[in-house]
Simulated scan of single mutants.
Amino acid sequence: MTNRTALLANTKALAEAIPLLMGDRVEVVVHDLRSETIAHIVNPFSQRKSGDPSNMQEIDFRPSDTVIGPYEKVNWDGNVIRSISVVMRAESGDAEFVLCINHDQVDLQQLQRAVRALQPARLSSSQPESLFRNDWHERLNVFVSDWCVQNGHRVDELDRTARRDLLGALETSGALSERNAASYVARLLGVSRATIYNDLKANTG
């Protein structure tokens, strides 16, 4: 087996292996630079076949190149193809083959459109004052969330010491002065209202 024959066999093996990993949306083409034809093709969604002209001018191939791309082109069906090409060289350093990996982007583009369609309308940069001016629930939520972040805690995993520290901070800030605030904080922390009052009493005792 000559060096060129061995190189072609290895390049064909790579061409067969890549779609096994990346799926049917990947076409792999082996171009023979001597004959300027396609020597091998896997998943031929471009509707080409072995023996067809290579048309290497499509990727602006230069003999000094090693890796070409990534670059984009449009398939016959209008789908956008993202490609990358690898120059396969003999031991002498001469370029013998080019391995082109073509990835059909249609699934990714459809997913991007679906994600954009599901995105909510852009929020305003600040909360509307008319809605939140008197919403002490919102202020409590923000206070508790900020306190937990600053102190390295999760609101649903506070032990007694951390809970009492949080309640002390809430009381100091005046956040518990609202009617039913203690009951709301109890629900927020997943404890009973009696526990909240006991913790507050312990803080002052």
Rank of each mutant, 00 (worst) to 15 (best):
Q150D: 10
Q150Y: 01
Q150C: 03
Q150F: 05
N151P: 04
N151T: 09
N151Y: 05
N151E: 08
N151M: 03
N151A: 04
G152K: 10
G152I: 09
G152F: 07
G152W: 09
H153I: 00
H153C: 12
R154E: 13
R154A: 13
R154N: 10
R154S: 12
V155E: 14
V155S: 15
V155G: 03
V155H: 14
V155I: 15
D156Q: 13
D156W: 07
D156N: 15
D156Y: 13
D156K: 13
D156F: 12
E157T: 11
E157Q: 15
E157V: 02
L158E: 04
L158A: 02
L158R: 05
L158D: 01
D159Y: 01
D159V: 03
D159K: 02
R160P: 00
R160W: 01
R160L: 08
R160I: 06
T161S: 13
T161W: 06
A162C: 06
A162N: 07
R163Y: 02
R164F: 01
R164H: 08
D165I: 00
D165H: 09
D165V: 00
D165W: 00
D165T: 00
D165F: 00
L166C: 07
L166A: 04
L166M: 13
L166E: 02
L166I: 04
L166S: 05
L166Y: 03
L166F: 03
L167M: 12
L167V: 01
L167S: 12
L167E: 10
L167Y: 08
L167T: 01
G168I: 04
G168E: 01
G168T: 08
G168H: 06
G168R: 13
A169T: 07
A169K: 05
A169V: 05
A169I: 02
A169N: 09
L170V: 05
L170R: 07
E171L: 04
E171G: 04
E171K: 07
T172H: 09
T172A: 14
T172C: 05
T172I: 04
T172R: 12
T172N: 10
S173P: 03
S173A: 15
S173F: 05
S173E: 15
S173G: 07
S173M: 09
S173H: 15
G174F: 02
G174W: 04
G174Q: 09
A175Y: 11
A175E: 15
L176Q: 12
L176A: 12
L176F: 13
L176I: 14
L176V: 11
S177M: 11
S177L: 12
S177P: 00
S177K: 14
E178S: 11
E178G: 05
E178N: 14
E178V: 09
R179S: 13
R179V: 12
R179T: 14
R179K: 14
R179P: 06
R179Y: 10
N180P: 00
N180H: 13
N180Q: 10
N180C: 00
